[in-house]
């Protein structure tokens, strides 16, 4: 009984909070984004692509817009995957993987684009709190960490390798206003982009303060034969193996018939 009586009180508080914030923001800006497709297909000749995101900024203060006080950040977060980072060390003269650290699920790819470099848009603590920017992707070690001092070392290595392979990338001036209220963001998708559900996030900042966020979902899929083979190999693994052997035997038989000389 006590639980149910407290519910209306909470609702009321929320309602007043809403009113209060509405009074403060004279013009409540609205951010909207759209993409031409919600599915990106990886074909056999996929070598990366540019994703263009269009957005609209409504109810903006024209004066602030003119002097560039509105900033937009657009980021595409890849599917969350667990990760293991290993480090090689010399052992009896050869280099082997001797140390490793497991990381909790985190975006396997990340591409960010903004009107100006993000550290000029908001304070580090804001960016970190909203996980905006490569530096602020949540990469937490999991399992038995052992020496905690090594976490930073492995985390940095992971970030560095992902940046080097193009999985994590940033375009500091990739968002531009094409009219007073329309903007266009270009995100670079690497050739090795992971398949799965990606999350497109757009943030609006005014006078270096966070205003709002919009999210869209996007799927990256393999197509045609690649998709078929991948599905077959994972869902009907035994059949796939038999097929691979049959293909090999057929090729071998064909060759021995075609080139038969005796």
């Amino acid at each position: 009984m006590r639980l149910s009586s407290s519910a209306p009180v909470k609702c009321l508080t929320a309602f007043f909070a809403l009113l209060w914030s509405g009074n403060l923001e004279a013009a409540d800006e609205q951010l909207d984004i759209g993409i031409s497709t919600n599915e990106i297909a990886i074909t056999s000749d996929f070598a990366g692509a540019d994703l263009t995101v269009f957005g609209a900024l409504d109810n903006a203060d024209q004066f602030l817009l003119q002097i560039g006080q509105y900033d937009v950040i657009v980021a595409l977060e890849g599917p969350e995957r667990k990760t293991i980072v290993r480090k090689k060390d010399r052992f009896f003269g050869i280099w082997i993987n001797r140390y490793s650290m497991d990381f909790q699920p985190a975006p396997a790819s990340y591409s960010i684009s903004s009107t100006v470099p993000i550290d000029r848009i908001a304070k580090q603590i804001d960016l970190s709190g909203r996980t905006i920017g490569i530096e602020h992707i949540h990469l937490n070690a999991s399992g038995s960490i052992g020496d905690g001092a090594r976490v930073a070392e492995f985390r940095n290595a992971l970030l560095r390798l992902r940046v080097a392979s193009g999985l994590y990338q940033s375009e500091p001036v990739g968002v531009e206003f094409v009219s007073s209220s329309l903007f266009r963001a270009t995100l670079r998708l690497p050739a090795n982009i992971p398949v799965g559900r990606h999350k497109l996030r757009a943030f609006l900042f005014k006078n270096n303060e966070y205003v709002m966020e919009r999210q869209l979902s996007l799927r990256v899929v393999k197509t045609g034969a690649e998709q078929f083979i991948f599905e077959l190999a994972h869902k009907h693994a035994f059949l796939y193996g038999v097929l691979a052997v049959a293909l090999a035997m057929f090729t071998g038989w064909l060759a021995s018939v075609m080139f038969r000389r005796d």
């Binding site: 090689k88 290595a157 992902r162 992971p194």
Partner: peptide, 10 residues
């Protein structure tokens, strides 16, 4: 390169 990254599941 001393480090290597393995992304699991795929």
């Amino acid at each position: 390169e001393f480090y290597s990254v393995i992304t699991t599941k795929e």
